[in-house]
Design a binder for these strands. Structure first.
Lengths: 202, 202
DNA sequence: ACGTTTCGGATACTATCGGTATCTGTAACG
DNA sequence: CGTTACAGATACCGATAGTATCCGAAACGT
């Protein structure tokens, strides 16, 4: 019995804190994406979420950890989107089309890329951010390399470089193009698809 | 006579201010590249240059304009380096080799790329930075497109996309890879060359 | 059921930084 | 040689990340 009441109790308490945390991430995500990392203050985030700054520091070690949580929530969706785009069973060209269509409204809005690179700059002076971002970067690169390996194998393409190199190159281009698009919205998303086809051609 | 003395006078005065300005740019450049834009305070820059913050605001409208001047001084060298790498009269492969060799010690140190993208994030909330960076971006893209056009024409290559698209793609990849290298130094500069060759193959 | 403890979150405070307003000393000039 | 203009210094303001402290309600033992 006592264990039940204990569970209910901690659950209730932990649940309410988890809600607070999720709400903060949700609001911070929108604010970070819209205004950028530096321009978003913790106080504004907290107030917009209906809390005070103390709630932020009660749930995160600071602004950096909050942003890491925001990026993780974004990455989840991004990874799902990419995998879905290439999950179809058409030929390579139609998959790239599907990917481009998704990217046009997903990555196409370069808000997240801009946040990504802005936050990457923080890594220079923060060992914590450097470590965490490097970890996620390795995971993402490995996943893309695996995707490249699978797609080229199925399409019978011999890449003129290793799958890892292609993964790093494509990821880098995606990030760079997104960053450039945040400066100049006239840059076409199709550039990425064109480069992709150029690299992945037989 | 009077015109001479006037000239000497204004010269002397203007000269000393120009020296101050150059010294500030020089010191700011090193500090921005080493510590990043956000982590470099105007006070530290001014003191390191042997002046006070007032000197900065006497020579620049603010931190943003100072950073634009720093970036311009960097861009000058970058553009010269790229053009030199492709100025040789060997075949395409050897030119790409020359470019890679230069990039290994020029772009290879990703400090400037990191500064570039960090500062690009500022453009979101600063119309001045947005305008100036967009202007420079258009110029650089046009120059690269011209270079691509020349190189492909000489090598008899038919690009599977427009020279402008290739220019944007390659520039974006360079920026993105540089930003990633600032997080993970193990990323090889050769990735860029490999991607370049893949795009520029006959 | 009640007193005690725990802890999520609020409040108050500090340090730092970009920017502005004002002042000063010196070079330019009549 | 007295006056003016301007480069640069100094003092100040507002905002913001982070810290220290405090409060009230939920959790728990008795």
């Amino acid at each position: 019995m006592s264990s039940v009441t204990v569970d209910q109790a901690t659950q209730s308490r932990a649940q309410r804190q988890a809600q607070t945390r999720e709400k903060l991430i949700e609001v911070a995500r929108e604010m970070f994406l819209t205004d950028g990392y530096a321009a978003s203050s913790l106080d504004k985030v907290a107030v917009a979420a209906g809390f005070s700054k103390g709630a932020v520091y009660s749930n995160f070690s600071g602004k950096e950890e909050l942003c890491m949580a925001v990026l993780d929530s974004i990455h989840e969706e991004q990874i799902e989107g990419v995998l879905n785009a290439f999950a179809g069973d058409g030929d390579l060209d139609s998959r790239i089309d599907a990917f481009t269509a998704w990217a046009r409204e997903g990555i196409g809005q370069p808000r997240w890329t801009a946040l990504e690179v802005e936050f990457a700059a923080v890594a220079r002076r923060s060992p914590y951010v450097a470590t965490e971002l490097a970890k996620r970067h390795r995971e993402v690169t490995a996943a893309i390399a695996e995707l490249v390996r699978r797609v080229t194998a199925e399409a019978g393409i011999a890449l003129p470089m290793s799958a890892e190199q292609a993964a790093v190159g494509l990821l880098g281009m995606g990030i760079g193009l997104g960053a450039m698009r945040s400066l100049d919205a006239s840059i076409d998303v199709d550039v990425f698809a064109a480069m992709m086809r150029a690299v992945l051609r037989p």
